[in-house]
């Protein structure tokens, strides 16, 4: 599997995804500062309490980050999987004496690990920078504790895994329709829905959502494996 992943990396450049991940991280950081500044910009804002608590600010930033990285995962999955198994490219993919399931599995592992790792790194950097600046020049009136820091990195980890899983779920629809736009549109819709649910969830609720996404993705992967195994080109 490691060799197949290495070969995937040789033939496709990850450069554009690195740039997209860093840009997304910067945009989320800017957005988080904007949210934290709302009580200063508009003190009459009715939901001011929401923007005055680290738990809510970090939660919102992390959820938005998850949505962005879900779409990134879908774009990557579309490029690495949907395009590879559509039309004439599929002839090339099936011309090697390598198990179709293993080759497909390598692509999925790559997409999932890259998304989760990129979100973890960028999300940690975003929350790290935000919390460091909050230590010296606080925008938020809330008290910064060790629990807040721990919660921030916990949220990033949880949402990073969720972004990878949702990317693979979107791929399920995209591969079924053999369409790149379907993969990306599904990711946007799925991310929007999960964002709404996660925003209203407690920690336990978030873990339940993560578990449900895991089960659904496992089912989706099994179904996609079957599709690839029986695919004729």
């Amino acid at each position: 599997m490691n060799k197949l992943i290495a070969l995937e990396l040789k033939r496709s450049s990850l450069g554009p995804y690195h740039i997209a991940a860093v840009t997304s991280g910067a945009a989320v950081l800017a957005f988080q500062y904007l949210l934290a500044a709302i009580p200063h910009i508009d003190p009459m804002e009715p939901d001011i309490e929401m923007f005055s608590s680290y738990r809510h600010l970090i939660g919102m930033g992390s959820i938005i980050c998850m949505a962005v990285f879900t779409v990134l995962a879908a774009v990557m999955a579309a490029r690495f999987v949907v395009e590879e198994y559509t039309g004439k490219r599929a002839v090339l993919a099936f011309s090697y004496p390598v198990s179709r399931k293993r080759m497909f599995g390598a692509k999925l592992v790559l997409v999932f690990l890259y998304t989760a790792a990129a979100m973890l790194l960028c999300g940690s950097a975003v929350e790290g920078v935000f919390l460091i600046t909050e230590t010296f020049f606080p925008l938020c009136g809330d008290r910064l504790t060790f629990g807040v820091v721990l919660g921030a990195f916990g949220a990033v980890l949880c949402n990073g895994i969720l972004a990878g899983l949702l990317g693979l779920l979107s791929l399920w629809a995209g591969l079924w329709k053999q369409s790149v736009p379907v993969t990306i549109v599904t990711a946007v819709i799925t991310a929007s829905l999960v964002c709404q649910i996660m925003a209203a969830c407690s920690w336990i609720g978030a873990i339940v959502v993560l578990g449900a996404a895991g089960v659904l993705t496992a089912f989706a992967v099994t179904s996609m494996m079957r599709q690839i195994e029986n695919m004729e080109v």
Binding site: L7, K10, R11, S12, R89, V91, L92, S95, Y96, P97
Partner: peptide
């Protein structure tokens, strides 16, 4: 597949790679 070589339909390659890199990748697979 291990014991045959084939060229079917319009050949498809890894476009951003050179000819030699395409062949090395093929050998690795």
């Amino acid at each position: 597949l291990r014991r045959t070589g084939s060229m079917i339909e319009t050949p498809v390659f890894y476009e951003r790679l050179s000819a030699a890199e395409n062949l090395r990748l093929h050998l690795a697979y």
